[in-house]
Amino acid sequence: MSNPGDQIQLCCFLWAHPGQEAALTAYEDRVLELLHEHGGTVVQRAVSDGAEGRPHEVQLYRFAGQAGLDSYLADPRRTALAEERDRVVARTEVFPVELRPSA
């Protein structure tokens, strides 16, 4: 996959622990507010019902480069919420994508 420059584009699937769907969204609201300070942008967030094993939330985001992603992941405000994250998030899958303009 080619990206302009060093840009990193990611897709994230998130599954909530049973009964923690609203708490997962609230947690993500908090930590995603930090992205812009690290050169990141939320491109899109989508919430589903999580039925039949589907993720409860899907996120697309981009960072200017690896250093921004690394600094976001290490942000002490984000890491301080690790216990909350473990309580509400059952599973996460993150993978690189190529974001293309819609036709």
Rank of each mutant, 00 (worst) to 15 (best):
G53F: 12
H36M: 02
T25Q: 10
G39D: 12
R85C: 03
L60C: 04
D86G: 10
T79E: 08
E33Y: 04
L34K: 01
Y27E: 04
Q66N: 09
V97I: 14
R45Y: 05
P76L: 06
D70H: 08
A103F: 13
R85F: 03
E57C: 10
E98T: 12
A51D: 05
P101K: 14
V88W: 00
E57A: 10
L34I: 11
P4S: 08
T92F: 03
D75C: 06
E52I: 06
L60R: 13
H38K: 01
R62I: 01
L10P: 07
V88G: 01
V58M: 05
R54F: 08
A67T: 15
A67S: 11
G50W: 01
L81R: 13
L24Q: 03
R78A: 15
R85L: 00
A74C: 12
G53Q: 15
C11K: 13
L60T: 02
G50K: 08
V31Y: 04
E37Q: 14
E21N: 08
W15I: 08
R78I: 08
A51T: 15
L73S: 14
A64I: 09
G19E: 03
L73F: 13
P101E: 11
P96R: 14
L81C: 07
E98H: 15
Q44P: 01
E83G: 06
A90N: 00
G40P: 06
A67C: 06
E98M: 15
E21G: 12
A46F: 12
P4W: 00
V88T: 05
E84V: 00
G5I: 10
Y72Q: 11
A90F: 01
F63C: 10
C11Y: 04
E21P: 02
E28G: 03
A103I: 04
L69N: 09
S48W: 06
E52V: 03
S71P: 03
E37P: 04
R54W: 03
Q44G: 07
R77A: 12
R62N: 03
D75K: 07
R87H: 00
S102R: 15
L99Q: 14
F63R: 01
S71F: 08
V47S: 14
R87I: 00
H56M: 00
F95V: 06
H56E: 00
G39S: 03
L60F: 02
L73T: 14
L69E: 15
V31F: 02
L35K: 03
Q20H: 05
E83L: 10
